Deep mutational scan, measured.
Amino acid sequence: NITNLCPFDEVFNATRFASVYAWNRKRISNCVADYSVLYNFAPFFAFKCYGVSPTKLNDLCFTNVYADSFVIRGNEVSQIAPGQTGNIADYNYKLPDDFTGCVIAWNSNKLDSKVGGNYNYLYRLFRKSNLKPFERDISTEIYQAGNKPCNGVAGFNCYFPLRSYGFRPTYGVGHQPYRVVVLSFELLHAPATVCGPKKST
């Protein structure tokens, strides 16, 4: 009989979020998941679920829940969905086509923008091939755009693969920082350890 609540607040209220190319993952297990707390949290810009209804989450049990978190621009949030393409979905964070879970995003301009620009948040701009679902690539190898080998030196046709967002408070909404948490639900042939409040007695 599990009684402790799942530590969703640790994920959602973290002081610093990860850059999207180096997205953070927390495994959540052996706890009671009260999703209504999240669902009623006012400032969400997006709360979209795939393969599961957000209002039914509290009735369900899962083997594991993974909480992935990172920061992207407002106009990139739409790429955090199954079957998407674009710089983020291709080179930074890719969801599987059969994704079961929820994508939760909110504007973090007050936290993550600075006058003069916040350059701490990076994304991958160049990559030889697209990421596989949930693949994480933190390499900083110089990207070779031409035929000539770069030998690890940036220059003509040789690019550092990461780019900084440089968030400023005055940017338009599409270019403002958004914090994103992706909850993915794993249902294995194993005992369920993460259940909603109704199922955990």
Rank of each mutant, 00 (worst) to 15 (best):
F126A: 15
I138V: 15
Q176R: 03
F134I: 04
N118T: 10
T15D: 09
A42V: 10
C195G: 11
P82G: 02
Y121E: 05
G83S: 07
H189I: 08
L183M: 06
K198N: 15
Y171E: 15
F156M: 14
V180G: 00
Y91T: 04
V20H: 03
F8D: 02
V11Y: 04
D137C: 02
K198A: 14
F160E: 15
S200Y: 13
F12E: 01
N58P: 13
K110L: 09
H189A: 14
F156P: 15
L131R: 01
N120R: 13
E141K: 11
E186S: 11
K26C: 06
I104L: 10
I88G: 03
H175C: 10
N120A: 12
S69K: 01
G74T: 01
P197F: 15
E135C: 04
R127V: 02
V52D: 03
G117S: 09
K132P: 06
C6A: 04
Y171F: 13
L5M: 10
G196E: 11
Q176E: 06
L162I: 11
A14L: 04
P96S: 06
T201R: 14
P54M: 14
E186W: 09
N58G: 11
P169C: 06
V173P: 14
N92R: 01
G116K: 11
A81K: 06
Q84E: 09
F156H: 14
P7M: 08
A154F: 10
L5A: 13
S113N: 09
I28Q: 01
A192Q: 12
Q84G: 12
V180E: 00
R73V: 03
Y171N: 14
V65E: 01
S113D: 05
K198E: 13
L5N: 12
D112C: 00
Q176W: 01
S19C: 06
S164H: 11
L183P: 00
N58V: 08
Y178M: 12
Y35Q: 06
A22G: 07
R136F: 03
R27C: 08
D90T: 06
N75G: 08
F134E: 07
D68G: 01
F47H: 06
C102H: 00
S200V: 14
P43N: 08
N58D: 11
C102I: 05
A81Q: 07
L122K: 15
T15C: 01
D97R: 09
S200R: 11
N151I: 08
L183H: 00
A14P: 00
G74H: 05
S108W: 01
V182K: 00
C49E: 00
F99K: 00
V20I: 06
I88N: 02
A89C: 04
R179M: 03
K148W: 10
T140M: 10
F185C: 05
R163T: 12
T201D: 13
C61G: 07
I80F: 01
V115P: 15
V194M: 10
I88C: 01
C49Y: 00
D97N: 11
N107T: 04
K128G: 11
F126Y: 15
I142L: 14
A22R: 11
R16I: 10
T201K: 11
P169M: 05
N75E: 13
N4V: 09
C102Q: 00
Y121G: 03
C150W: 02
V32Q: 08
P54G: 07
P197A: 15
K26L: 07
F12G: 03
N40R: 14
S36C: 03
A105E: 02
F12T: 02
C6D: 05
G116T: 12
Y171V: 14
P169V: 03
T100S: 07
L122Q: 15
Y119H: 15
V37R: 14
K94R: 09
V181A: 02
I142R: 07
N157M: 10
V153F: 11
N87I: 15
N157G: 14
I72C: 07
C158N: 06
F160Y: 14
G146D: 11
T63E: 11
P7N: 14
Q79P: 01
P133K: 04
D90F: 04
P7R: 12
I72E: 02
S19A: 07
L162S: 03
N157A: 11
T193H: 11
D137W: 00
K198H: 13
L57S: 04
Y143M: 10
S200Q: 13
S69D: 02
S129G: 11
D9T: 12
E186K: 08
W106M: 07
A67F: 06
Y21E: 04
N147L: 11
I142P: 13
R136E: 04
S69E: 02
H189N: 15
A81N: 02
L131F: 03
A192Y: 14
N109D: 10
K148E: 15
C150N: 06
T170W: 13
S69R: 02
P133L: 01
W23F: 10
G101M: 00
A190R: 12
A89K: 04
T193A: 11
G116N: 14
I88A: 03
R73M: 14
L95Y: 00
D9M: 15
Y178G: 01
S139H: 08
R25W: 02
S139L: 04
N1K: 09
R73T: 08
F17A: 03
Y123T: 06
G116I: 08
G101W: 00
A190D: 13
A145V: 13
L57C: 03
E141G: 12
Q144D: 10
E141R: 09
A105T: 08
T15N: 06
R136I: 05
Q79K: 05
A89W: 01
L131D: 03
V11P: 02
F70E: 03
A18K: 07
L38N: 03
S184A: 08
R136P: 02
V180L: 03
I2R: 14
G196M: 09
D68R: 01
I80A: 02
P191Y: 07
C6V: 04
